[in-house]
Design a binder for these strands. Structure first.
Length: 701
RNA sequence: GGCAGCGUAGCUCAGUUGGUUAGAGCACCGGCUUCAUAAGCCGGGUGUCGCCGGUUCAAGUCCGGCCGCUGCUACCA
């Protein structure tokens, strides 16, 4: 029963680059980190979540130029966007800084001096392509040209996508700068390098034995970098460059990857200073009691920086090393890389326009198991999982029992529940262990198992019958509902790191704010229960469709419908045009715009009804057999019973969706769908018929 | 091209150091229920564990090859 020993835990997420908006891929990391930190805080630990915008580098400089604004103006605007998006997803940083801060400049200087003092900095000339028109050195991806090996046109500066050759940008035939179109010239410039080879022994030991890395990662590093001499790390860029000028090397700037991780320390500095402390309490070895843990959450793409460069820098500077580098995979949507053209490049903002952030937080939690596999956001699965778990199992528990307690409140003593609450409390240890290892998927499975038990309890006790049985059952009813609501609140405590909003609302329903994991150990008794308000809403397919539609690239400017256009009679005021009632359209607004590609996915065919029979048990269905021409027959269940006489349908031509996935219905397999018009408020269902002459099997274009 | 990860039920995923008959949730099928936001409960596994070969008394698990998917590729893999 004693509270867990308090730990001091500093947690970071990778710094988002100030050159783009937050998307759902980013959020895999920020949501994951936020859950971890909220969990640690709920457990009573001294945890702090720090992050910052990563603001420097060529890309920012070039974009600022293109937009004819200053870099600082650009990064200030991006920062605001980022903060808004994070807040929208309930991601709660203790401090959110910027790499373009005074604190960061100062700390970069301090760590730089340590590297200099250790003799790790060397200077060397580097030949690089230079864009004379834009006046900047060009990273490989800003140069395109013809592959020197296979002569494929329009290849990047470092490798050919066609033949796979790798080369130096200087080898490209007819190189062109993608910035200005100018022909780049080769220029030589001095760069500063940090020697890593002297750190090889340290890195080999740290990656393998510190416990900071998953053995798979340690193994990967051992086999690919630590087996051979480590190359020097090019750490400076010549002017012009948006970043910090190196104090003892005028005209040279720290490369963005030097100042970015130091941003973690700078954020600590700003946060600690504001509350009267110092960053040294967290980053100095042996400072503070107990020793602080440092956890970095990162994506697998930046493994190299966080497991070799960064620890080497910290080691050289004599600072504390990461306790854990927690590496996660990337996000795919519907099994594929996010794609703008498919509408699966989902921005945080767009998601928030259509859906509840809690749904994504839960879905990610249910899929994150702490390893480096990519995770897939399957939109159908997303809706099914959220609806089934959150709405059907968890929230429904309160929804189906809270109302019986509105007047009386919870029972004065906790009733016999067959050990359910006690079992839930015991499970808490296992759930906590899963959270602590970032195996949130396992935590969610355990929580849902608890919810299943609770629902089974309610079902067995049949409180609805007690409610009807009259006053002599009132106490029993109160007891059953008391158990159910306590089991619900226990589950919500376990879900609080993932679903802070649900935790807040549950606190308002019964028992007050949830502040500690310990609240899962003791049932509430004798307290009031507020009127029940819906705690979560189902995800509807239409919301997902709208999200995808809104994520497609801006459609070519739909010809602004000019009111005077003669082809647009409804707005021409022409008296000869009859005005139809507006209700049908108003009742069911237009679906989001789709492309011709979307449309052609749906194969509409003319079909002839060969047979139509009643399905006696069905309220709405008729069983139709239709011909698509030749021998192609389909069985289709159509929801038109009561509007059409089966006998009158036989022989008639209709339109069917011919490539619709078969659907198992209660009365048999339906192999298509007959198209019909209907609408809110309308009473009938109106089948479509082609003009005479159409033949079964013809496609609608 | 190089490197890494993955490939288990219709879908999303668990499967610990190789060890009975390969699991969960969802979906689906059958039954029950009607308090609840079309929610809930009971029952049913629907599978060539990507393919081929090897090690072993025993392989989803270890080894080799192949295929497929995904990601990364720091001025240098």
């Amino acid at each position: 029963m004693n509270a867990p020993t308090s730990r001091r835990i500093l947690v970071t997420s990778a710094l988002p680059y100030a050159n783009g908006q937050i998307h759902l891929g980013h959020l895999v990391e920020y949501i994951q980190t936020d859950i971890f930190v909220r969990f640690q805080k709920l457990r009573g630990h001294d945890a702090v979540y720090l992050c910052a915008d990563d603001t420097h580098g060529t890309a920012i400089m070039i974009r600022a130029r293109a937009e004819e604004r200053s870099e600082r103006d650009l990064i200030a605007a991006m920062r605001e966007d980022h903060l808004k998006d994070f807040a929208g997803f309930d991601i709660e940083f203790d401090h959110y800084g910027s790499t373009d801060s005074d604190a960061n400049r100062r700390l970069c200087g301090e760590i730089w001096r340590s590297l200099r003092d250790k003799g790790l900095v060397v200077s060397r000339d580097v030949k690089q392509l230079f864009d004379p028109k834009a006046g900047v050195f060009l990273a490989d991806r800003f140069v395109r040209g013809t592959c020197p090996r296979c002569k494929a046109a329009d290849q990047y500066g470092d490798a050919c996508e066609k033949c796979g050759a790798t080369y130096s940008p200087a080898d490209l035939v007819d190189p062109v700068s993608t910035l200005s179109g100018a022909t780049p010239e080769i220029r030589s410039a001095e760069h500063l390098f940090v020697q890593l080879e002297p750190m090889q022994g340290f890195l080999r030991e740290w990656t393998k034995n510190s416990g900071a890395l998953d053995p798979r990662i340690a193994n990967y590093l051992a086999g690919h970098f630590l087996g051979e001499p480590l190359r020097d790390w090019d750490i400076s860029r010549p002017a012009p460059y948006f970043g910090f000028e190196i104090p003892d090397a005028p005209g040279h700037y720290w490369y963005v990857w030097f100042d970015a991780p130091i941003g973690y320390v700078a954020a600590t500095d700003e946060w600690a200073t504001a509350r009267g402390g110092s960053w040294k309490e967290w980053w100095h070895r042996g400072a503070g009691e107990p020793a602080a843990e440092i956890h970095h959450f990162i994506g697998k793409d930046i493994t190299y920086f966080h497991t070799l460069f960064w620890p080497a820098m910290l080691e050289a500077a004599g600072l504390a090393l990461p306790t854990k580098v927690r590496i996660h995979g990337f996000l795919t949507v519907n099994g594929e890389k996010m794609s703008k053209s498919r509408g699966t490049f989902l921005l945080a903002r767009t998601y928030l326009d259509h859906l509840d952030p809690a749904c994504l937080r839960y879905y990610y939690a249910a899929k994150l198991s702490g390893n480096i596999d990519d995770i897939d956001l399957n939109l159908e699965d997303f809706a099914a999982k959220v609806n089934s778990d959150l709405v059907g199992k968890v929230v429904n528990l309160a929804s189906r029992t809270a109302r019986w307690l509105e007047g009386a409140g919870l029972s004065e003593t906790y009733p016999n529940d067959g050990g359910l609450f006690a079992q839930g409390a015991v499970d808490g240890a296992e759930i906590a262990a899963a959270y602590d290892e970032c195996d949130f998927a396992r935590a969610m499975r355990l929580v849902m198992a608890a919810a299943d038990r609770a629902n089974a309890y309610v079902d067995a006790e049949q409180p609805w019958k007690l409610a009807k049985a009259g006053p002599e059952s009132a106490e029993r009813l109160r007891d059953v509902a008391t158990v159910a609501l306590n089991l619900f609140r226990q589950i919500v405590v376990y879900l609080a790191p993932v679903l802070p909003e649900l935790a807040t609302e549950t606190g308002a329903l019964v028992g007050g704010p949830i502040r500690s994991w310990e609240e899962s150990r003791h049932p509430l008794t004798g307290v009031a229960v507020a009127p029940f308000k819906p705690l979560a809403r189902r995800v509807e397919a239409a919301q997902l469709e709208a999200l995808v539609a809104a994520s497609k690239p801006a459609t070519p400017p739909s010809a602004p419908s000019s009111p005077s256009s003669p082809s647009n009679p409804s707005s021409s005021g022409n008296a000869s045009v009859t005005t139809d009632p507006a209700e049908p359209l108003a009742a069911e607004p237009l679906a989001p715009q789709c492309t011709i590609d979307d449309f052609t996915k749906i194969d509409l065919r003319v079909a002839r009804i060969l047979a139509a029979e009643e399905v006696p048990e069905a309220k709405k269905l008729l069983k139709l057999t239709v011909s698509l021409g030749g021998e192609e027959r389909r069985t289709v269940f159509a929801g038109i019973k009561g509007f059409h006489d089966p006998a009158a349908l036989v022989g008639r031509l209709v339109v069917v969706v011919a490539n619709l996935a078969p659907r198992q219905m209660k009365f048999g397999l339906s192999e298509g769908m007959v198209v019909a018009a209907s609408g809110a408020g309308a009473t009938g269902v109106y089948l479509l018929s082609p003009d005479s002459g159409a033949l079964p099997g013809m496609r609608l274009h």
